[in-house]
Design a protein around this nucleic acid. Structure first.
Lengths: 210, 210, 210, 210
DNA sequence: AATGAATGAGGTTTCATTCAT
DNA sequence: TATGAATGAAACCTCATTCAT
């Protein structure tokens, strides 16, 4: 993975920007279709309708294109969070909203998400980048869980760090099962309801008023 | 993945068996070290101390070697299960045992498990094979959850299929975090305790006598 | 080398002349730094702060730029000569002066001289050009030597043509050793003294009055 | 240039050795014909009658092949020496022998020598390797000159280090002029006589008995 | 004159697989 | 069975040069 964002400087001309955009779109199509390993630069260029050399005018290599692609869709890398939970009247509602939002954006970008899994599994640099981003969420979630535990609104026998990771995994894996593997009913409401229920249950979260 | 298990018939001579074993061991080392994509047949052969040609005497290709490698360690492919839960006096104990067993075998084979993630992400055939095996577990777990729900020992608002997948994910991802990424304390007891607690909580499982 | 000198006609506008000058300066820097083979048009343009296309407004190709560069510094292409020797009272003084002048201009342009060696080694056209220029000097020097031999002021056992080349080589290689390879003390006086002494000795030149 | 000698391990089989030899021979032909820069791996392989891939079985790259080629002909890299001069009755004879030997081996390998000039001009690593080798000769020659000076058999006004380099240059450049550029009569005897005469004269070497 | 993106031929290198010994 | 050299398809990437703006 390149340090951050795209390696080549942004195109100065209108034509340059158009070509870059075409390559991104083509790259997404081809990568999603062939997988990261099997996607060829030549195929991406052809799909974009430009010469191979033009690929290199805009990107250093496949990694670089992929990084740009992910950056474009950064939002979907966000994990579901309970971060704000303790500050609100109803933790369960917050969790439900976060889960639903995550599931929806996952569904919108299911193929890219699958690609993400793939690249993270293969490429150490990208795996690290992803873990760093996840870490922030996990830390916030773990902190939120600790807060709930201190105010006796959550099961104190649960380790907050483990729980934070486990709950994220629960949601993202269910999304993967529903939208990528398609072994689960892709109904967002049903998914969100069950996952939220399990999330709340697993920590034995009590509502404020309870 | 090869059609069915290892491609070549079992070596007849003692020498043949020794070479095959050396290749398996070398293959594991090299694959774990370099990743599936970057591992070269030549490197594996060199590591095993045999000529490249000999690789093909024993395996059809890298996939084939990998399949054999996984077969060798089939046990670790088992997913945590609540399958037996309903038949026993204490579901929580069964879950705890299953989780602990899974975590322990994961820890013993952490690098191979990471490799498994990788190959499943890349190779469709292997991904399917893995999903099929997982499916059996998920189905059994879902059935167990349904049974508990029918006897009012589990939260009926939870979708059993989603839950089965989500709970597996929770455990395996925590194992990944602990033993591969090393972002979690690798203490099996603490992991098992928290995961079991969350698992039981998430379904609101009540003990028989409760 | 281009057919004859620089390919493009001299720039008419003030702006054009400035760009051309910037390219020449940048070209010299980059060629000296990267060597003729590795220097890229793009690097030269960047160094000059102009677009790649502008390079071609002013030069046909790298050869053309290089030719212009050399033309600029024609003086250093002069070889040491004893051409005037016989017409003067003291041949040794003339040789000493010529050698010193050559060594000094070599020192001033050491990097360009190294570049010259390089291009002459690679590019046949340039090698020929260089040989033609050298030839004039060698011929003049050989003629001078013959004259000295006829007036019994030089060793008649020495072949004038071989000597002319050998003596040039002696001086230019010493300059190369001192200013490019830096394996000799770069003190021009010491170099000139020794070389002149060897030169005079090698031909057994006798002073007029001797 | 590779560290030293060829990068790949020596071929184990007879066939391997034959292919390697064929590649060396073809490499020499093609490099001499096209020059180092323009010679293509594909051409060398074709000339050797093997597939491109086979080139890489035996050599890391063009540099590597070239290094092996030079190693094969190491003798011709030797510079003419006066090293033994002082120990013998007649310094002039020693110098004459050394010069003649050098000129003859240069003539035998003229094209490779031209190639050597070329690569040394282009490739820093090889230039350094060559300078290191030359250095040993220059040092020995300089030492010999110092010895002659101490016993008053040579002109003390001449700097031995400069002289050592200058004299080597004289001989090798004359050889280049005769056998590569062909601007000098390639008669080894005449060359040797003149060069030896100049060499002896330039240092004002006196014979033992004189 | 200047710009800078587009082009694509051309070369390098890798490596799974084959096969004669 | 083992060996290890040979093969050549396949990808990658570079960069001189062109050209529309």
């Amino acid at each position: 993975m390149s340090e951050s964002g795209s390696a080549r400087e942004a195109p100065r001309s209108k034509r340059g920007r158009a070509t870059r955009a075409a390559l991104l779109q083509a790259g997404r199509r081809v990568l999603e279709r062939d997988g990261f390993v099997d996607a060829k630069i030549a195929d991406i260029s052809a799909e974009a309708g430009v010469a191979v050399g033009s690929f290199y005018t805009h990107f250093r290599d496949k990694d670089d294109l992929f990084a740009a692609l992910v950056e474009e869709t950064t939002a979907v890398m966000l994990h579901p969070g309970v971060a704000e939970v303790a500050r609100d009247a109803d933790p369960a509602t917050m969790i439900a909203d976060a889960n639903r939002a995550y599931l929806e954006s996952y569904r919108e970008n299911a193929k890219l998400m699958a690609l993400l899994e793939q690249v993270a599994a293969i490429d150490e640099r990208f795996r690290k980048l992803r873990e760093e981003r996840s870490h922030a969420f996990h830390a916030r979630n773990a902190a939120a869980i600790r807060r709930l535990q201190r105010s006796k609104m959550a099961d104190r026998a649960v380790d907050p760090d483990i729980a934070a990771i486990a709950l994220s995994a629960m949601v993202s894996r269910a999304a993967y099962g529903a939208f990528v593997l398609e072994v689960l009913d892709p109904d967002v409401d049903r998914l969100a309801d069950t996952l939220t229920r399990m999330w709340v249950n697993s920590l034995s979260i009590k509502s404020h008023g309870t």
